[in-house]
Design a binder for these strands. Structure first.
Lengths: 194, 194
DNA sequence: CGACCAATCGACCAAAATATTCGAATTTTT
DNA sequence: AAAAATTCGAATATTTTGGTCGATTGGTCG
């Protein structure tokens, strides 16, 4: 019938929805089991623990966001535009996932080591992505940067700081686009060779 | 300092938010206490139990919806228009409270008697509101109804049936208005004297 | 001040909820 | 039909949580 991996993935998909709505603590294995149309014990056949499922969900989440970003910037040629698209897509996706991060952020996830690990790994990957854009821009003489890694870190850090939900809530999409434009100007104006 | 009643209300306001997000079961007294910046025991100084708070929240919710409806139809004179405004506002408010009812609906609230009681009392009041509109319409020879109470019950029942979230989810507001227009025509066309 | 009352809270408990395990049943594969 | 993979109900171990109690704080009034 179904591959074991497929069943696992379907459980992850189901769990993702519930976790995104209720967060880690308030999500129960019973709910995951029922929503997956499985006995609770069957879930444990595929995953070791609740944390294990959560980890799988978070990892998939991160890799999906990463791929989305890569696909988005791939066709863009102009480095400045590329950076803009990057920030735009990142923020948009983040807004879509707002519930998820919202439900997660406030919890005691600091107790869960793997969350920190994934975050760090993903942060590093994101820095590399941004750095690649900056390097390309520097080579094409579009950006005026020496230390591309430092700049990438600064940008990624800044973007993380802007994850605060308040900044994005209660706003139309069109409004958001305009605001992002301003934001990008503020952040990167100094980088652009004029 | 603050009146006791004011503190109670502030706790209700806080609890409302949490209940609306997580439903009855998943909301804990600890959360309500922390969000209210009070010790848990202090909450019990104002309320007898978790159910007690929930009841207060639901009652306030119901009375607010009722008042909103009354305010909305008050200035309208034409009965047909009045009925339309009534349905429109009712559905809009309901959509705003969708999360709330969503989180509540699926739970085992049938175990909590008072929920049924409030619902019944509120249903009756809503029937009376609609009946008043219909009576006025009948008097003004706008509506062609004999048994206004029966008609009111039918309308309210129909509206309740339409509370199903599927009907309202994933739709723009403008779209909704148009759909409500159709709905009203379908529901009440037979009533209107032509 | 000091007796009184209103309000607050930390620590505690029993009950309920929940994660996890186990062994048996059931299905699928060989 | 034996073996392996998968499912699940019931039992267990652990945590969470609604609710209580006694002590404490802080304001008020004589």
């Amino acid at each position: 019938m179904l591959d074991k991996e497929e069943v696992k993935n379907s459980i992850i998909a189901v769990a993702r929805q519930i976790f995104s709505r209720f967060g880690f603590k308030k999500t129960t294995m019973d709910e995951i089991a029922i929503a997956s149309r499985k006995g609770k014990s069957s879930i444990y056949y595929y995953f070791e623990s609740k944390e294990d499922i959560f980890q799988a969900v978070v990892e998939k989440e991160a890799s999906m966001l990463k791929r989305e970003l890569q696909e988005a910037i791939k066709p863009v040629v102009d480095p400045k535009e590329k950076l803009k698209v990057y920030v735009l897509v990142r923020m948009k996706t983040l807004k879509n996932l707002a519930n998820y991060y919202d439900a997660i952020r406030s919890e005691y996830l600091s107790h869960l080591d793997f969350v920190e690990n994934i975050r760090k790994k993903y942060d590093e990957e994101e820095i590399l992505m941004v750095e690649a854009i900056l390097k390309e821009g520097a080579e094409k003489m579009e950006f005026n940067i020496e230390n591309t890694r430092l700049a990438a870190i600064a940008i990624v850090t800044a973007l993380k700081g802007l994850e605060i939900p308040m900044f994005w809530q209660n706003n139309e999409d069109s409004d958001m686009e305009k605001r992002l434009d301003d934001l990008i100007n503020i952040l990167f104006y100094g980088l652009v060779r004029r």
